[in-house]
Design a protein around this nucleic acid. Structure first.
Length: 838
RNA sequence: GCCGAAGUGGCGGAAUUGGUAGACGCGCUGGACUCAAAAUCCAGUGGGGCUUAUACCUCGUGCCGGUUCGAGUCCGGCCUUCGGUACCA
């Protein structure tokens, strides 16, 4: 009975000592909210800083570990900046249109709008529990007319300037479901994910934004922004600028000409055949009667293949001749015209000249179909007679090339192009791999396209003063046959704004990437009624200083947003060239090796961890897991380590509760006034301040957490022997360091030592005493032939000759050098002394 | 396929410009406290060899090769995993 009581009290005592995270987190969250600590004064432009994280997609699943991984550390960076005195604007919103809500509706019958609003309410609630410093007055969502109205307005501005246009483009069509499928709804074998029917390609007339008009500027602009090199490289490759020449080939016995694009006009004399893309309009025109059937069969067989399959360099090349012949403009030679799927209609002119001797794909194709291979570029050091074993694609000397023979091929490119231009047989041309942005979606849950089609007036844009075109609520999403909106008579039938006659609305909605191309401008005043966004604020606050989001957006969202920003600049809406000055990618948190997704059923729910450890521990653990930009596979193995750190930290502050009321710290100390323990503490505190700033600045949160752990170990070890004001000095700084990573704990600790307000109301950051960063002694590693043999301690900056004598007096060094000749010595001051012996 | 990344102890990872590989944490082992356990605290912890022991030797950053006094880091060639590939966002 007595033991029981003793244990009971002991448990009570422990419960009391344990960090009451639930209570503390709630307390600070309400404090921040009630005192509007994180409402940004956008009029205060001195040290303004716009920190943006990619807004959240409110699909069926709520916040998962991946969201925490994205938002927590970014917020820590923003908080760090706030403490440093920046006026930080950190908003949050919802990318609320999109396919998954619609799929969910088809499965459950719950209307996308209803499920989206419910999800947003849940997510908002969860976000608030993370304890981020979001300015909730700036919250926005894209699925309301107040937002998407401006997508429509943007569309009209693009339309006015000829940058929104219609053309035919293929979609994935499931003949059984009678619906258009997204690429992700098509399975690997080309079948529909719902019913398994083979998906077909069907051509529909759809809207495009002419991003290609900005291709050159999008490329050049990459030099002006502080983005990861890999992202810039991916965008560069995606845009795929190539400078070359278009060459016209006459077709024998035909009025048509074939225009091909080539970057290697120097190889024109090596052309032994020409190839048309299967979709090319020329195929039907040029194919001779004899070949009509085989060509038609071939073209049909290619329809189900994806672009990836077609352009695969390991897939066996296929193709058929058309029976027609083209005339090579440089030598008048007659070469056969083939159709082959390795040529894409979407790139260049949709036709290529084939030079098997100097192009790998052409070489493979020619070998397979027995087409001639001619050598026209001589590899340095080889003979003209040597047989080509593979395509030679580098520069060399031109041979078998008429008047151009003997030229270096690099010069030949220019000379042949000049010659073609003089004779009007070709033109220099720059081509881009980048294609125009297809924005039409045959779906319900998106922004209606503000155009009507009138029998009399044709295609008519909705006048700006009649916007928004509201997305109707009552729509049968499951309707078979194309766009759901097409079946809503009330929506689709309207009066023509021009003639007042009967007209039909465009039944498609916009790609959701349109929404996300300008949301960062709307955040500055989401309630702005006089335009898309407040231009004055936009000019003052953008480009965004820091943008954080996944690398999976490298080529699409991040390119579209840059395009739209440049367009908005051209119509006078913003005065900057780029939307995002600095960009950081967080890595992906996977689970059992796979990206977390509801469909895979591997989403890790953070709630149980928040309940057991609190949000500070959870976000700090995510930061501690590894490098932010790498992500990693989820495991909860180490979370107890971070929890222990938090507990020990809290105990330490609890031990010195109210200490700043007993004694005031100095701003700096003279090292000579401190005892050994104090010196060690003082150095560690300053060293940590210094390194921590550097680490957080560069999003290296894992090492920042480790630094705080080291600091705590140091304080626990030496505090007993420290004077009280130095303890205050250390704890003040420690709570400031904690505050960005564990915001609730940081505030609580700051309060425990006796401070009244939130750290963020009167931001505090402490100056580093650089004198404390110096050391008295260094350990020099001594190597013999690059192998570590000894370590010697020396005063810092000891002259080399003194280091040398110490090194050669060392017994271990002697044992490795005795009887050998010293060939070379390398001394890296204060670091390494390497002796090379023979 | 193409474009872009990554690979280090039993595990997550550290090593900021080519300069002491394994910081910090998890786990594990041993000890203290306890009737006992949990929690906490202290110590140890890459593999192999050798020694009474301090020590010392040796191998070691996905694989093969190269540059260098010195390579996790740079170069060439592979292997594996991940992101994107234009209608998931």
């Amino acid at each position: 009975m007595i033991t029981f009581l003793i244990n009971f009290f002991r448990i009570l005592e422990r419960v009391e000592m344990k960090y009451p995270f639930a209570e503390v987190e709630k307390k600070w969250q309400s404090y921040w909210e009630n005192n509007q600590v994180f409402k940004t004064d956008l009029a205060d432009l001195e040290k303004k800083l716009y920190c943006l994280v990619m807004f959240i997609y409110p699909s069926g699943s709520k916040l998962h570990c991946g969201h925490w991984y994205n938002y927590g550390p970014t917020d820590s960076w923003a908080r760090f900046k706030k403490l440093q005195g920046y006026n930080v604007f950190e908003p949050m919103g919802y990318d609320a249109f999109g396919l998954p809500a619609e799929n969910y509706a088809i499965k459950t019958g719950i209307h996308p709008q209803d499920s989206t609003f419910t999800n947003i309410d849940d997510i908002r609630n969860q976000l608030k529990h993370m304890g981020c410093m979001y300015d909730w007055s700036a919250e926005l969502m894209t699925c309301v007319p107040e937002y998407y109205k401006w997508n429509q307005w943007l569309f009209l501005q693009l339309y006015k300037r000829g940058l929104a246009y219609r053309k035919k483009a293929p979609v994935n069509w499931c003949p059984s479901c009678q619906t258009v499928l997204a690429n992700e709804q098509v399975q690997q074998d080309g079948s529909c994910e719902r019913c398994g029917t083979m998906v077909e390609h069907k051509n529909l007339t759809q809207w495009f934004f002419k991003i290609t008009d900005y291709a050159d500027e999008l490329l050049d602009g990459l030099n002006k922004i502080d983005w990861p090199d890999k992202t810039k490289l991916m965008q560069t490759n995606w845009i795929g600028k190539s400078v070359g020449t278009e060459v016209k080939f006459r077709v024998e016995g035909h009025d048509e000409t074939i225009t091909v694009f080539t970057t290697r006009p120097d190889t024109l004399f090596g052309v032994t055949y020409a190839v048309l893309a299967p979709e090319s309009e020329l195929v039907e025109k040029l194919t001779t009667d004899e070949y009509k059937e085989t060509v038609q069969k071939y073209v049909d067989s290619v329809k189900s293949l994806t672009e990836i399959e077609r352009t695969s360099t390991v897939k066996e090349k296929t193709g058929v001749p058309t029976g027609a012949f083209a005339i090579n403009p440089v030598n008048g030679e007659k070469v056969p015209i083939w159709v082959a799927d390795y040529v894409l209609a979407s790139y260049g002119t949709g036709s290529v000249m084939a030079v098997p001797g100097h192009d790998e794909r052409d070489f493979e194709f020619a070998e397979k179909f027995g087409l001639p291979i001619r050598k026209v570029i001589l590899e340095p050091g080889k003979n003209p007679e040597d047989k080509l074993e593979e395509a030679y694609t580098d520069a060399g000397t031109m041979i078998n090339s008429g008047e151009f023979s003997g030229l270096n091929s690099d010069d030949g490119i220019e000379k042949v192009s000049d010659w073609l231009e003089e004779k009007s047989l070709g033109n220099r041309k720059t081509n881009f791999r980048l294609r125009d942005w297809l924005i039409s979606r045959q779906r319900y849950w998106g922004t209606p396209i503000p155009v009507v089609y009138c029998d009399k007036c044709g295609e008519v844009p909705i006048p700006e003063d009649q916007l928004p075109v509201t997305l109707p609520y009552d729509v049968n999403i499951k309707s078979d046959g194309g766009s759901p909106l097409a079946k809503n008579e009330e929506f689709i039938n309207t009066a023509c704004p021009q003639c007042g006659g009967a007209a039909k609305r465009d039944a498609d909605t916009m790609d959701t990437f349109v929404d996300s191309s300008w949301y960062y401008l709307r955040y500055l005043n989401p309630n702005f009624n006089d335009g898309m966004f407040d231009t004055k604020l936009a000019n003052e606050w953008t480009p965004v200083d820091m943008y954080v989001g996944g690398a999976e957006h490298a080529t699409m969202h991040l390119l579209y947003a840059r395009f739209i920003h440049k367009f908005l600049r051209d119509i006078g809406m913003v005065n900057s060239d780029e939307p995002f000055a600095k960009l950081v990618h967080q890595g992906t948190i996977t689970n059992q090796g796979a990206k977390m997704s509801k469909s895979k059923g591997n989403v890790v729910n953070p709630d149980s961890f928040i309940n057991d450890y609190g949000s500070d521990v959870f976000r700090m653990y995510l930061m501690f897991m590894g490098p932010y930009e790498l992500g990693g596979d989820w495991s909860d193995k180490g979370i107890v380590g971070v929890d222990r750190f938090v507990q020990r930290t809290y105990s330490l502050f609890k031990k010195y509760e109210g200490i700043s009321k007993e004694s005031e710290s100095k701003d700096a100390y003279e090292l000579s006034d401190l005892n050994e323990n104090e010196k060690s503490v003082y150095r560690k505190v300053n060293h940590t301040l210094n390194k921590f700033s550097e680490e957080i600045e560069h999003f290296r949160f894992n090492t920042a957490v480790a630094l705080l752990m080291e600091l705590l170990n140091e304080l626990n070890k030496n505090f007993e022997q420290c004077r009280i004001d130095l303890i205050v000095y250390s704890l003040e700084r420690f709570s400031a360091l904690l505050s960005p990573l564990a915001p609730h704990l940081g505030e609580e600790c700051w309060g425990l030592i006796g401070r009244e307000k939130s750290m963020y109301e009167d931001p505090v950051w402490f100056e580093i005493d650089t004198k404390a960063l110096t050391v008295d002694n260094v350990t020099i590693a001594v190597q013999v032939n690059g192998k570590l043999r000894a370590k010697i301690d020396m005063p810092v900056d000891t002259p080399q000759d003194e280091v040398k004598s110490a090194v050669f007096n060392d017994d271990k060094v002697k044992s490795h050098t005795d009887g050998k000749t010293v060939v070379k010595e390398i001394y890296v001051p204060n670091k390494i002394y390497n002796i090379v012996v023979k």
